[in-house]
Write a protein that binds this DNA or RNA. Structure first.
Length: 261
DNA sequence: ATGGTTGGTAGCCAA
């Protein structure tokens, strides 16, 4: 069972890249972020034609997440609990049946949080992370295979950046952001890509500006966090770096796990 | 070094 996540940065602007990757990487379940589309703008027919069921939480212009699955959805939940006034489309959860039982997967687009001196943006990020922590803690009680995958907008450690010093004033690398991420890990979740690739230098994002990809000036901010029951079944994890070299790429590349389910 | 690039949308915002 291959589960992948990709911040596509506008699914309609990248439909060719997107379907090419779906065919080449062939995940059983794909988590998308920044589809930048309302639900009725999502290229549903093109994706269904490749054998996927599609569930979206879209938003016009910004944000927007989706789950694609070759398995049928048993259950879908839209929106992260904990703040009914939050209208940003950043969270969708699906439940599937495998031969080993239930599998739960969430596609998350954690708030960027910049600039850190803004009165709303960084506090919104930290509050969203607290809501995610509460939700994860509750789900972990189910003792099921659970994968929380997406753009976390957090650089966990200095080793997750080519130039950590360049990020010290950025919301992605603030002590509070990193601490909240560690709290998630300490609840009992495992960073699958870190576990399978402990060496530094593996990135998932390169800015469009200043030739960042050519200089490999990247950061690792797209993560798949696994419950103990999913980690027990972990076979492999990786990053599809090759998509960043394509024409008109997303600034993020996919990350994935293979689970024996 | 406060530059530079992209997508979505309508004169800038978010990243």
């Amino acid at each position: 069972m291959k589960i992948a996540t990709w911040n596509i940065n506008g699914v309609r602007a990248r439909l060719g890249n997107f379907t090419h990757w779906l065919r080449e990487s062939a995940p059983d379940i794909a988590c998308l972020q920044e589809i930048k589309s309302a639900d009725d703008q999502f290229p549903r027919a093109e994706v269904e034609a490749l054998g996927y069921n599609v569930e979206t939480l879209g938003q016009k212009g910004f944000n927007g997440v989706a789950l694609l699955s070759k398995l049928p959805f048993d259950e879908v939940n839209r929106g992260l609990p904990g703040d009914d006034s939050d209208e940003q489309a950043r969270f969708i959860e699906g439940v599937f049946s495998t031969k080993s039982g239930a599998l739960r997967v969430a596609s998350i687009y954690l708030p960027n949080g910049n600039p850190i001196d803004d009165s709303k943006k960084f506090p919104y990020k930290l509050a969203w992370m607290e809501r995610l922590q509460s939700w994860a803690q509750e789900r972990l009680l189910l003792e099921e295979p659970l994968v929380i995958a997406g753009d976390y907008n957090v650089i966990p450690e200095p080793a997750d950046a080519k130039r950590p010093a360049a990020w010290v004033n950025d919301a992605l690398f603030q002590p509070e952001s990193r601490a909240a991420y560690r709290t998630l890990i300490n609840t009992g979740l495992t960073d699958a890509v870190r576990l399978c690739h402990p060496a530094p230098g593996l990135y998932t994002f390169w800015d469009y500006q200043a030739g960042s990809f050519q200089k490999d000036d990247g950061i690792r901010i797209d993560h798949l966090l696994l419950s103990p029951q999913a980690t027990d079944r972990l076979v492999a994890a990786g990053v599809d770096r090759f998509t960043r070299g394509w024409e008109r790429p997303s600034d993020h590349v996919p990350a994935w796990v293979e689970l024996d389910l």
